[in-house]
Computed example of a mutant assay.
Amino acid sequence: DVYKRQAGHPAPLLARHGRPARLLPYEDGGPALGLLPRARWPRRQVELGAAWSLMMYTDGLIEGRVGTGGSERLGQDGMVAMVNGRLDEGLAGEELLEAAVAEVRELNGGELTDDVAVLLLGRDPERIRRGGGSAPRSRPASPVVARPLGVQRPPL
């Protein structure tokens, strides 16, 4: 079990083996982190299970447009469908994140106007038992735990 606090961010995406990814419930996320000096955020207990992946992201990922010049945004439902498509292809870990961000940019018709940050946490007891870590890697392991997928700044 884990406790989550939203602090103004969109609902995390939970994926479990053999099931479609889904958004965790989002009731009251509270104010954005750093907005109010004495803010409090409601917490919610979430049961993750033995094997899982949890994707947390900023709204820049879901606010991109769908199609060049379009007014429709990708939104959370569009992101969930897109991530499920990549999971069905067998993508996981860093490859999943890179493919997701690349597809969001492509759907948008170019760079996004808001910053994008994505974090994927996961646990795979079977892979850990085999000594392979918690996610497949396409490259040898490195001491770097996380790396930016590209920094974008909104236009001035």
Rank of each mutant, 00 (worst) to 15 (best):
T68M: 12
R43C: 01
G67I: 06
G67A: 15
S53E: 14
R65N: 14
G69S: 13
R44D: 06
G70P: 06
L36E: 02
W52G: 14
V66C: 14
P42A: 15
S71Y: 06
W41L: 03
G60N: 03
G67W: 07
R44F: 08
Y57D: 04
S53Q: 11
L61Q: 03
L61F: 01
G70T: 08
W52A: 10
A39E: 03
A39R: 02
L48V: 14
L61A: 04
W52T: 07
T58I: 12
E63Y: 07
G69A: 07
L48W: 12
E72T: 11
P37E: 07
G67Q: 13
T68D: 05
G67F: 10
A51F: 14
R40H: 11
T68I: 08
L48Y: 11
E72K: 14
R43A: 09
G49E: 13
M56D: 05
R38Y: 06
L61V: 06
A39N: 05
Y57E: 10
Y57M: 14
W52D: 10
W41M: 07
G69E: 11
M56P: 01
T58N: 11
A50D: 13
V66L: 15
R38I: 00
M55N: 02
R65K: 15
V66E: 14
Q45N: 06
A51K: 09
G64I: 05
W52E: 14
I62Y: 09
G64R: 03
E72D: 12
E63L: 02
P42N: 09
I62V: 13
I62G: 10
G64D: 00
L48F: 15
L36V: 03
L48C: 15
V66G: 08
R43P: 04
L36C: 00
A50F: 01
W41S: 11
G64F: 03
R44G: 02
W41E: 03
G67Y: 10
T68H: 11
A51V: 05
L36S: 00
R40I: 00
V46Q: 11
E47I: 13
L54S: 02
E63S: 10
T58W: 09
P37T: 04
A51Q: 14
G67K: 13
E63P: 04
E63D: 15
L48Q: 06
R43Q: 09
G49N: 13
W52N: 07
A39G: 05
L54Y: 03
G69I: 05
W52L: 05
P37H: 05
Y57C: 13
G67T: 07
G60R: 02
E47M: 15
W41K: 00
L48K: 11
G60E: 02
L36R: 04
S71F: 07
L36G: 00
G70N: 13
D59S: 09
P37A: 13
G49F: 10
R38Q: 06
S71K: 10
M55G: 12
R38C: 09
T58R: 10
Q45Y: 01
D59W: 02
G60I: 08
G60P: 03
D59Q: 10
G60C: 03
P42T: 02
R38N: 06
R44Q: 13
M55H: 09
E72I: 05
A50G: 03
P37Y: 04
G64K: 01
M56W: 01
R43F: 06
A39P: 03
R38E: 14
R65E: 12
S53C: 09
L54W: 06
L54M: 00
D59M: 07
G67H: 12
